[in-house]
Design a protein around this nucleic acid. Structure first.
Length: 284
DNA sequence: ATTAATGTTCAGAA
DNA sequence: TTTCTGAACATTAA
């Protein structure tokens, strides 16, 4: 489920291990497991990156970017179940691609694991990366959003605010889990039309986005009951214990202690909220 | 034993 | 133009 906090955790976790390292080899999973979207071909990528050095590791929305001193950059989208791991124990079922570093010392590895195989890996030129970094293809990063930016985003659509938060062209980085958490903290009904949000609500949402995402990063993301998500050292995150509404249907609301958390479906995704704290119509 | 659900993204239809 | 639907895949729960 990597959303912004999980991808940020991946980036912070792998950076000290791979920044400045020379790529001895890039290769697809040696067991030739299920294919995954990769551009160009794995063989062509291997040819282009052999001997280059990873100059920087950054996050763009929910993607991991490995910048190379050649100007090219790897862009990895974990999507549902992708992981970036450092020197992980062997797991031929989940390993998709790996980078080998030698640098004169013992071999160490960066690996991309993906249980479901929905993730993608691309090698982009500097020009292609510039395009990806702009706000045309992906919106402004959620951590960079000010109240004024949110006013613009909300004015631009009449869809439900929960659905708008998931649109990566409007704002980049928020996914299904954190959208529910943010709206509960902000005391906004997920069913409210984005355009109908009052200034006070937008202010609360602005603060809630930063509070929820920064706290989730501090706890190294959420590992759900299926245990899929892991940090770069293959350890589970801790933010799931702080979830206010996500996957807490029928539980008592932690804020008001009166409402029961309910689950509804919006845009074919589960939304969790407290009908007492997050009434559809604004109070007073 | 089938069906629904799960984190994300995008092509194609409405 | 914008918004909605289904598919990509693996695994688990009902």
């Amino acid at each position: 489920m990597p959303e912004l906090p999980e991808v940020e955790t991946m980036v912070r976790g792998i950076r000290p291990h791979v920044q400045g390292r020379r790529i001895a080899e890039f290769r697809a999973c040696p067991c030739d497991c299920r294919p995954m979207l990769v551009e160009p071909s794995a063989r062509e990528i291997a040819r282009r990156v052999r001997g280059t050095t990873i100059s920087d590791v950054i996050r763009r929305a929910k993607r991991v970017v490995l910048k190379l001193n050649s100007g090219d950059a790897f862009v990895i989208e974990p999507r549902m179940t992708g992981l970036m791991l450092i020197d992980a124990p062997p797991d031929p079922d989940h390993l998709r691609y790996e980078w080998l570093f030698q640098d004169g010392g013992p071999v160490s590895r960066l690996q991309f694991w993906d249980r479901r195989g929905l993730g993608t890996l691309k090698l982009l030129s500097a020009e292609q990366l510039d395009y990806l970094m702009g706000v045309d293809q992906l919106g402004r990063d959620a951590l960079e959003m000010t109240a004024s930016h949110w006013v613009d985003v909300c004015a631009a659509t009449s869809t439900a605010i929960k659905v708008a938060l998931l649109n990566q062209k409007r704002v980049a980085g928020i996914g299904n889990l954190y959208a529910s958490e943010i709206l509960h903290l902000a005391k906004i009904s997920p069913l409210t039309s984005a355009r109908q949000l009052k200034p006070a609500q937008i202010d609360r949402m602005t603060a809630a986005v930063l509070e929820v995402l920064h706290t989730a990063i501090k706890y190294e993301g959420s590992t759900l009951s299926d245990g899929t998500y892991r940090n770069a050292l293959n350890k589970a995150g801790g933010y799931q214990n702080a979830h206010r509404v996500y996957d807490r249907e029928d539980e008592l609301c932690v804020t008001c202690s009166r409402g029961k958390i309910i689950r509804v479906v919006q845009a074919q995704r589960s939304t969790f909220y407290c009908p007492v704290c997050q009434p559809v119509r604004r109070r007073k």
